[in-house]
Amino acid sequence: MTQSGLKVIKPGVLTLVQDLGRFAYQHIGLSPGGAADEHAFLWANRLLSNRPNSPALEICFGGLQLEAFAKTNIAITGAEMNATLNERPIKNWQTHTLNVGDKLKFAHATSGIRSYLAIQDGFQLQPSFGSVATVMREKMGGLDGDGSPLKAGDFLPCTEHKPKLTTHVPPLFIPDYQQPLILSVIPSEQTDQVDAAELEKLYHWTYRISPQSDRMGIRLEGEPIRPKLNGIISEGIAYGTIQLPPDGQPIILLKDRQTMGGYPKLGTLFVLDAFLLSQQQAHTEVRFTQMSLEEAQEKLRYFYRFFGA
């Protein structure tokens, strides 16, 4: 009997195994990593009634081609990549049934940049230090535990399942990644690092996403915000932290962030907005507004309770 799973025919531009991240090793410098857009990742697992943290694929920019060596069910969410199953178009944000020999192809992203492919029960992979999250820079996680992205010939083991009734995400919950983005910021309590008049620029001007952005962080380009200090004593940095290097161009730290940083901080991007930001292409314009900590926590509680994550 051969093993059940999906075989990678073409890995596409960049396809990574992800879960919700590796948290317990931050004190020795390991990045938490994890799905860049948890909203789409969690929906993919939810559609299949998987545990929220089940390993899934994050397909960046598209081009992935797979062949099924199993009968099972999958869900695709996130960026629109005009996926096909045996050359027939299939819908995003819903489940599909796979049979042995099926060919699943993703074209190039037309809205958003990251798609998620979850499989019933999750891909059966050995976690590295508590998580399968792929952090390429640290050579950590992924299929073989060495932080590599998927390559042609890789085999992703899964379990077999009978066809299940199609489930889909209600249209109300499907984000339009092409809508103009107004991102909410929870301002930092450290008010001595940037003058109020300089800080005001963040909320007044439009910023563009620099092409030098990746899973570690989004670099912005626009009206420089001059910090009062060139650096601070290095301290832990949380998801969404907005750092201000001496050139005044803010950097928003995302999933593959380093654990510590020594630049002044403007505040923290609201988590759900950071997920949306992770779906944006380079050169996209964004604006900022403020959100209170209380409101952010209430919305986040609602979000994670909904997904049971």
């Binding site: 948290f23 317990a24 931050q26 004190h27 938490p32 004593i233 290095s234 301290e235 832990g236 940095i237 949380a238 654990t259 510590m260 900590l293 209380e294 926590q297 986040l300 509680r301 994670y304 309770r305």
Partner: peptide, 22 residues
């Protein structure tokens, strides 16, 4: 808690916002 990052003058503590607010 979900993670701790001790540094020179600070300790960062990551927590689950479902269980505790600030």
């Amino acid at each position: 808690i979900r993670g701790l990052v001790p540094s020179y003058t600070t300790l960062m503590l990551c927590y689950d916002p479902r269980k505790n607010d600030f």
